[in-house]
Design a protein around this nucleic acid. Sequence first.
RNA 1: GCCCCUGUGGCGGAAUUGGUAGACGCGCCGGAUUCAAAAUCCGGUUCCUUCGGGAGUGCCGGUUCGAUUCCGGCCGGGGGCACCA
Length: 868
Amino acid sequence: MSTATERYNGPDREKHWQSVWADARTFEAETVSDRPKYYVLEMFPYPSGRIHMGHVRNYAMGDVVARYKRATGHNVLHPMGWDAFGMPAENAAMERKTHPGTWTYENIAVMRDQLKSMGLSLDWSREFATCDPEYYAQQQRLFLDFLDAGLAYRRNAMVNWDPVDQTVLANEQVIDGRGWRSGAEVEKRELTQWFFKISDMADDLLAALDGLDKWPEKVRLMQANWIGKSRGLNIPFERTDGEAPLHCYTTRPDTMRGASFLAISPDHPLARELESDNDALAAFLAECRAMDTTEAALEKAEKRGFDTGIEVHHPVAKDRTLPVWIGNFVLMDYGTGAVFGCPAHDQRDLDFARKYDLEVTNAFRLPGSEVDVDAEALVPAKTEPVIYVDHFAGVSEATGQEAIDRTIDWFEDQGLGTSQTQYRLRDWGISRQRYWGCPIPVVHCEICGVVPEKRENLPVRLPDDVSFDQPGNPLDRHPTWRDVPCPNCGRPAKRETDTMDTFVDSSWYFARFTAPEAETPTEPAAADHWLAVDQYIGGIEHAILHLLYARFFTRAMQKTGHLDLAEPFNALFTQGMVNHETYRTADGRWLAPSEVRLDGEGDARTAVELASGDPATIGSIEKMSKSKRNTIDPSEIMEHYGADVARWFMLSDSPPERDVQWTEAGVEGAWRFQQRIWRLFAMAEPVIEAAPDQRPARLGPIATAIEQAAHRTGASVAEAVETLRFNRAVASIYEFANVLAGHLKGANAAPEEDLAWAVRDGLTRFTQLLAPMMPHLAEELWARLGYNTLVAEAAWPAVEPGLLVDDLITIAVQVNGKRRDELQISRDADKQAVEAAALELDGIRRALEGRDVKKVIVVPQRIVNVVA
RNA sequence: GCCCCUGUGGCGGAAUUGGUAGACGCGCCGGAUUCAAAAUCCGGUUCCUUCGGGAGUGCCGGUUCGAUUCCGGCCGGGGGCACCA
């Protein structure tokens, strides 16, 4: 047929529906409701300037869930806010001479408009930014409560210090030993810093992972590894000079026979004590402290030691003594800051022993082998049985794990050591020497020490009159801001100038959304009602830090009376990234997709730089990033194709947890589908007009087929959305569209009543199933069907279970496991009937070729297998 | 090094508890429509084939009437952690 129908203009109509939803306040959560609550949350964005495709994907997924839950009778909370403190605002301030706040709020305005143009079903009435004083005031209150509860404390800690920018750098900001911005050589410095006592909750944070059964297994594993619980032994080593014993922590006490030296950290109290009257040692320690501690540097760093001259007795073989060394590889903040070296069973210890000519003694050998250690240490898996040599507790052949357990017990029985559980997780250092963050609300008084700011004085506001024309923290050099009277004694004192790590801001925002204007951090009734978050969606890059900090914060807020639960996120989903091809010129410049023309296909594809006409290389498919210039601006896509098309493409094809590749062909496919649906409804118009209000008592075969497809699609879309398999929901909708289109083409201009009814009912249901994913088009179609309500407010269509199954089914018939024919038979036919009918099939007879049937396996409603 | 995930057409990917492998989409091929093109519509599309069939879910083996699915061993790809004692 000819397509006289006009094209659907998405970008134009979408604006209309967005204003209709906003006017009707369709998406505001009800404070009081009879309906069950559902809290769906996507990780809130950092206001960097413009939204990117990762946001589109993330928020499209969350929006499908929110709209579906609303349709299925839930009172939905689906809020949005801004993770607005952070370094980029200060960098922008330095480069553009603007205030970080100005830059941030301008970005928020742009990004809010962009998100609104996506047509997300968000409750904008609850919006806030973490840099709003109303928000950080409450965060300061939480800090003071944590301080009172012993959950926040201050201590000296080593940090990476950039001497040019005059700031502390995170490990990730140190590249090859230099600051990522200044390029200056980074120093290790000891600073007094604020910490949250997350280590207190290590065991609970680990144990509670088991209950998070709606979290990805992968994330739970990553968190468990990060917390890193291990059981070992704390052994005091008696010194030959009679001084206080040195304690070592080990997880391999079974290798004690092989101990040949002790190594202590350069930061160990003993090392510091010896330093004062030993110049050579002092020089060695200074070098250790200058050392870069990034992973890459550690990989290459030489293992170096310094012999202190001190000796200790072997705890079991009392006649043996072991020298005490200082080792540059020993960490002060794990275990006791001292280890015993067992060169035979640890490669690093072996290298160290060879270098400094220390003993190498085996604790065990492999079964059937007399060979001792040569170039490589003998380190079998803990599950592998080995033969222990002369083990003091009498262990002979055992796996490492068995021997470890028995050794720990033996040491405890003998009073030679104590079992100790150790965690890898360290306390969370939250001090940042930055301006654009939440001020830590304490005052330093010469008389009273560290004094909390009075709660009635909160918030401690960031001053607006700051300059960024010199490096360092503007709060530190502000002429007056620091000067305050001591809250305790009233004498002149100084404010703390550190601000909080921005991870603190995002550790409780989900709770604040439940009562964004409360005068306290949370409002108990609202928090109890809405929390936990029912479905949280975000990137896998936050699998550890953000999610672990939020779990800690929820517990800490529980302890301080702000919340009444321990786990903030009932279900978690981590979505994949959005990738795109990369393009480069011969001289290595990255080109944006809009700067190249692509020709050919398959392996013969070529790219040409538009501006110069020079050939460009098509590179690997990578995460969209500014540095590789392989980004696509969501706003351009939404202005050209519309938000529904962008959303639909982001939800199609790729499973949501996997990476998706953005392609022009993919968006166009989504756009064509949208137009096809539009034509389908145009084509159906005369049929719809002929439809009776009531379902006719009898439906013909075509009407029945449409009705069945409608109900089956309803069931499968619901199931797919519930399990967040959006690509399958999309596929089901395509199938249903194909069914409807196929039948409509065959229908004549004056259809039978039953068919007309089935078409209208089918299209109504189709629109409802489409609505969570293409909400604007769905409203347009809903109006076209003659409804004067909003499909966004319509109830999810009920499914008639009887329509999901056929009376006559097709089952495959195999011979020896190979499919040879198929059988049409009544659904409730008994086994004997199925078997008899199967054996009569031509294809089966042919395949059997007169062989004897040994056995026939009949799985009702599934398959028949004839064994011959 | 330790821990984990993953491997299916030309491509993205489907496939309840083991039960017709390749749904749906993209691409491609053929046809219709058109003066022509775009758009649209219809048909085909795992591979091989002597058109009877045969092979096939990274590779090798096992369990089973039956394996993409379960088990063992390899190979490839990806991720997390890592001087953690």
